[in-house]
Amino acid sequence: MMVAWLLTLPGAALVGGLAALLAGQGVPGVIALMLLLAGACLVIYVFSRRHRITHANVTDSHEVLVLAAATPTAYDDDPRLEVPPKPKKVRRPKAKSAA
C-alpha cells in the first residue's frame, strides 16, 4: 500500500502528461480526450463487474479481487448464497460462539 501511495503522484502525472499532449491540440484534442476518458471509465467499470463488491457483501471478506472471479454475479464462497439476511437492530452483540 505504501507503494501505491508513492506511485499515485507519478502515476497520475504520467496520465496527466499524456493527456496534456492531446489537450494542447485545441477542440479536436479535447473531444478525443473526452472519448478516451469515457472509454477508460467503461473498461474499468467492466473489470469491476467481474468481482462485484456492494453494500451487501462489503464486510464478507478482506480481499478485493479483480480478475480472479468466476462470473459477475456469483463466486466461490459467495456468502449471499448461504447466509440469510442480517437480522435487524440487534442492540447487543451476538454470542461469540455463534460465529
Binding site: A12, G17, L22, V30, L37, C41
Partner: peptide, 10 residues
C-alpha cells in the same frame, strides 16, 4: 483538463 483526467483515471 489534462490534470483532472490523470487524476480521474488514477
Amino acid at each position: 483538463l489534462a490534470g483532472l483526467l490523470g487524476a480521474i483515471i488514477w
